[in-house]
Design a protein around this nucleic acid. Structure first.
Lengths: 347, 347
DNA sequence: AGCAGGTCCGCCATCGATTGCAGCCTCTGA
DNA sequence: TCAGAGGCTGCAATCGATGGCGGACCTGCT
């Protein structure tokens, strides 16, 4: 019966603290706020802090955000969290945002435009301060809408054809060069490419870079040795590889546009009793977790996913601070990881 | 110059819509709200909807939540998103929550109590309607605090010793039975166990169940053949397996408390030139993604992670609806997945 | 003593949406 | 013609925190 505060059941409010400390709510606000704390008598600050502590006061960020027009929240759209490239990216983003007091709200679109629209609407309603998109396509009209709305946006992992916002992506051209040079240096010349969907920049860039690096190596790429998968998933990789095998054109190595496609190639090759790397060498792209536990451990191009996330978060924070998007396109450099899925061609 | 609305730059507000439709804001609120829509003249509703559409109005959920005291948001704490068991669980939860209009806010604690406290505080400040915890320990005082605060809580994947809230976990006892019976049926009797951390129920239950199923099979478990890993990660599994090998006690099979530990066992065994399954059979637990691509593909106990997520979300939704936690402990049944990491012991 | 200047704090409007209450208008029935 | 009953809509308070404005009080100086 010491007072009537905290009878609300739901957490204490600023007024509760004010009552207990016998000051006005606005004084509590100033005392608790750091940047305005020096406006309040130190003794009063102590009294207020003690009261807040005693009541277990936690500021209602809804109310604060409503007034200040900043939610300290950033939204992020990804196709699918269970795709193993995303967890490290997301962690990188979360960690970097958390350092500045921002919270990330994640949503999966499964690549469905309708779902995407719905989610973007919800995010705007939720008043997110910015939006990170890992769902960009080469043609991506959504970007214009968002730009028009004045919402800071950063593209992650993929970018679009005519970017109007900053982006952070791997340097796919360099990465593909590592893969091709490695195979060439082992003596391969009949090199196939299981390409990714061409609607995304990752798919297109890797495909184009494959062609150009082959030519750099003095090999004219054979169209018969290129197959396009409809998604970046294992199943699609297996289908593409079967198609390749079905064509009868012979090849001694495959460059897959990502590790999941490479894994699909494993499946298709093994199904035909072809051994990796004895019969066919396989190179992936990404270095997803467990790539070194596969049978055989996958030679691949390592993309620094966590760092991509961190860098994207930094660009976002910068945009949030200065309200001026610097419109950069950051490319992070991959590295080559030699494992056991590649060897010199037989014979 | 048709009006002065939408000059705010930031999205249109209820008043803007009201002005355009020439009605009072409260009427707009009712017209837009579904449950109160029948209070408004259908013609007026149409006019309001048209105005809202024209302005691209998106309700400010901050303001709404402040008034209604419901954010339609659920928080979730996980140790680390890059642990492959969590993405499927999280997707299950997100999908099930989204069906009812709820949003999930995720945070990684890395198992650090300080971080955890900070995050829980932030979640409460954010006024989440409920909290899903995948971070429970056997002794988990945090639960009492949250229960005292009257916040709906559901435990996922792990539970605590004296649960005061509902939980959804795999039936680890049954799962361990499948693993042990399988090895015994192949003829193994010298079976080792790489146990997980005993601070978590998953670690303890699987350990206890290992012992009891061994006895059921008529084999007295040898303490020399049990090692406790300090975490559920690959590295810890490798260390534990080395320890086991170092003891000199011989064994023909290992039951690992999860797949990551099993993978660590692969590493340690291979480092000693021991082949799986020719020299040692290995059984994991979880069936994480890519377990069938490992070298060799891992025989394991499949836990329905996505379904665990869905079920947990359903319990949460139920609690949110009825304000009465049903205090159930749901166990989902695992299944056995036979792959290539187990074989009969060598003669 | 009187005044300038500074420190500290209270008052109140405000962010955008919700909701109980009240009032207006129209329609019905006597 | 008028009372009564609904159907619609407007009014204003409210959720909790913030911040501009102004006032009270104190200090120090002339």
């Amino acid at each position: 019966m010491s007072g009537t505060e905290e009878m609300t059941g739901r957490g204490a409010t600023l007024r509760d603290v004010a009552n207990r400390a016998r000051v006005h709510p606005s004084t509590v606000s100033r005392a608790l706020n750091g940047s305005t704390r020096e406006l309040v008598n130190p003794a009063t600050v102590r009294r207020i802090l003690k009261a807040a502590e005693a009541l277990g006061y936690e500021p209602n960020s809804l109310a604060r955000s409503l007034k200040t027009n900043r939610t300290m929240t950033v939204g992020m759209l990804i196709p699918d969290l269970t795709n193993p490239v995303f967890p490290p990216i997301v962690r990188g983003i979360e960690d970097a945002l958390a350092d500045e007091g921002y919270t990330l709200v994640l949503a999966n679109t499964d690549g469905e435009p309708a779902k995407e629209r719905r989610i973007v609407g919800a995010m705007r309603g939720r008043q997110v301060d910015g939006l990170l998109l890992a769902t960009a396509l080469r043609e991506y009209p959504l970007l214009d809408d968002l730009a028009a709305a004045g919402l800071p946006v950063v593209l992650v992992n993929r970018t679009s054809e005519h970017p109007t916002v900053p982006s952070v992506t791997p340097d796919d051209h360099a990465g593909m060069g590592m893969a091709v040079r490695h195979l060439v240096s082992l003596g391969h010349t009949r090199i196939a490419h299981v390409a990714g969907p061409q609607l995304m920049t990752t798919g297109l860039t890797r495909y184009n870079s494959f062609l150009s690096w082959m030519r750099v190596a003095g090999i004219e790429p054979d169209p018969q040795l290129v197959v396009f998968a409809d998604s970046f998933k294992e199943q699609a990789g297996a289908a593409a590889c079967e198609e390749l095998l079905g064509r009868g054109a012979d090849f001694t190595a495959i460059v897959a546009a990502n590790d999941l496609l490479a894994l699909g190639c494993y499946d298709a090759l093994h199904a035909q009793q072809l051994a990796v790397p004895e019969n066919v060498s396989v190179v992936g792209h990404n270095d997803i977790p467990f790539a070194d536990n596969f049978g055989p451990p996958l030679t691949t191009v390592r993309i620094p996913h966590y760092e991509i996330g961190v860098k994207a978060a930094q660009l976002m924070l910068e945009a949030l601070r200065s309200r001026s998007a610097s419109l950069v396109a950051v490319h992070l450099t991959p590295s080559f990881v030699l494992r056991a899925s590649t060897a010199a061609p037989r014979g």
